[in-house]
C-alpha cells in the first residue's frame, strides 16, 4: 500500500538510471565505458554467486573457475575455430555449466567449511590445468580474441557496452523470476534447514545442483564477455583473489537480496577506480571499508535500514516488496 504512493518517484528514479546508462557512451570517454563493462560483468558474477551463497546456502569459494572456463572456451572457439561470437558466448556458458555440474557432483554433498575448501581446491585445479595445458597456450594465454561481427563490420566498444547492458538486465530478470517463484523458495528452504526441506519431499541434492549449474552458466557467460572485450586472457586473470572479490561484493551488498550483489559489484568495481590517485593507500582503504561494512551492516547494504534515504528504500522496495514488509 505504501509502495503505491512511492511509485511515481520510483519510476522517475529508475528512468533516470536507465537514461544515464543509455547515454553513457555519449557522455564519457572510452575509459568510463571500459569500467562500465567490467561493472556489468561483475554484476553477473556477484548475482550468480548470490544464487549459491545467498539463496541456497552453498558457500562456494571457487566461482572464478567457472568464469575462467567460460572465458577460455569462448576465446579458444573464437581464435582456433573462428566461430561467431554468439556460438562462443553460448558455448562459454554451457562449458561452465558442465564443469559446474561435475564440481557440484563432487562437492555438493558436503557442508559448510568442507564445501568451501573443496570448491576452492577444485577451482584452483581447473585454473592450474588451464595454465599448464598446451591446448590453452599455457602461461602465454590466448591473444587476438576478435570482437564480435556486427552488420558486416566489427562491433564497436559502444555497441558491445549496450550488448553487455542487455545481457546483464536479462540475467537479473531471470534471477529475479527464479528467486520469486517456487524454485527460489525451494532453494531457500535448503539454506534455512535442509532436514526440514527433505521432510517436505524436496530433493535437496537436485535443487543444489540446479542452483550450481545455473550459477555457473551465468559466470561462464560473463567470462565469455570478458574474454571478448579485453581480447587477451591469461590464467593469472583468474586467481583465487577474484573469487574472494566476488564474495566480498555479495557480502557487502547483502546476501540473499536482489539489489545487494548489484550494489556490491558497482561499489567494489567503481571505488578502486575513483580512488586510484590514492595509490599507496588504496588497499588500506579497501580493508577499512570491508571492516566498517561488516561491523555496521552485517547483512550488507541491502539489509541496512535506510530510514532516512527514502528513494533508496523505494528502489529496494520495488524489487523486494516482500522482504520490505517483513522487517519486524
Amino acid at each position: 500500500m505504501e509502495l503505491k504512493n512511492k511509485r511515481p518517484a520510483l519510476l522517475i528514479l529508475c528512468g533516470a538510471v536507465l537514461i544515464v546508462l543509455a547515454a553513457l557512451p555519449y557522455l564519457f570517454s572510452g575509459y568510463v565505458l571500459q569500467v562500465a563493462v567490467y561493472v556489468g560483468i561483475y554484476v553477473m558474477l556477484a548475482a550468480s554467486l548470490n544464487l549459491l551463497i545467498g539463496y541456497t546456502g552453498i558457500f562456494s569459494m571457487g566461482h572464478v573457475a567457472f568464469y575462467c572456463v567460460g572465458a577460455y572456451t569462448s576465446a579458444l572457439l573464437a581464435t582456433k575455430l573462428d566461430m561467431p561470437f554468439i556460438i562462443c558466448f553460448l558455448a562459454g556458458g554451457a562449458a561452465a555449466g558442465l564443469i559446474g555440474a561435475l564440481v557440484g557432483f563432487a562437492a555438493l554433498r558436503l557442508n559448510d567449511v568442507f564445501l568451501a575448501f573443496t570448491t576452492m581446491g577444485l577451482g584452483e585445479v581447473i585454473r592450474i590445468i588451464i595454465q599448464n595445458s598446451s591446448f590453452t597456450n599455457g602461461a602465454l594465454g590466448v591473444t587476438g580474441i576478435p570482437m564480435p561481427e556486427f552488420f558486416g563490420g566489427t562491433m564497436s566498444r559502444e555497441v558491445f557496452y549496450y550488448m553487455v547492458l542487455v545481457i546483464v538486465f536479462l540475467s537479473l530478470y531471470f534471477i529475479y523470476r527464479l528467486v520469486h517463484s517456487h524454485t527460489g523458495r525451494t532453494w531457500m528452504t535448503i539454506r534455512d534447514d535442509a532436514d526440514a526441506a527433505a521432510s517436505l519431499g524436496i530433493n535437496v541434492f537436485r535443487y543444489k545442483m540446479l542452483a550450481m549449474v545455473l550459477s555457473c552458466v551465468i559466470a561462464g557467460l560473463a567470462g565469455s564477455l570478458y574474454a571478448t572485450f579485453v581480447q587477451y586472457i591469461n590464467a593469472s586473470n583468474f586467481s583465487i583473489t577474484v573469487s574472494i572479490n566476488i564474495i566480498a561484493m555479495v557480502a557487502i551488498g547483502g546476501m540473499g537480496t536482489l539489489t545487494g550483489p548489484v550494489a556490491g559489484a558497482v561499489i567494489l568495481q567503481v571505488l578502486p577506480e575513483a580512488i586510484r590517485f590514492l595509490s599507496d593507500y588504496r588497499q588500506l582503504m579497501f580493508g577499512v571499508a570491508l571492516v566498517i561494512s561488516i561491523m555496521f551492516a552485517p547483512k550488507g547494504l541491502a539489509g541496512m535500514k535506510w530510514k532516512r534515504l527514502k528513494p533508496v528504500r523505494a528502489i529496494c522496495g520495488l524489487f523486494e516488496a516482500k522482504s520490505g514488509q517483513r522487517e519486524e
Binding site: 523458495r185 531457500m188 528452504t189 534455512d192 534447514d193 532436514d195 526440514a196 521432510s199 540473499g256 516482500k322 517483513r326
Partner: peptide, 8 residues
Amino acid sequence: IKLFPAMT
C-alpha cells in the same frame, strides 16, 4: 521445531 525462520 524446524521452520524456515527467514520466511513468512
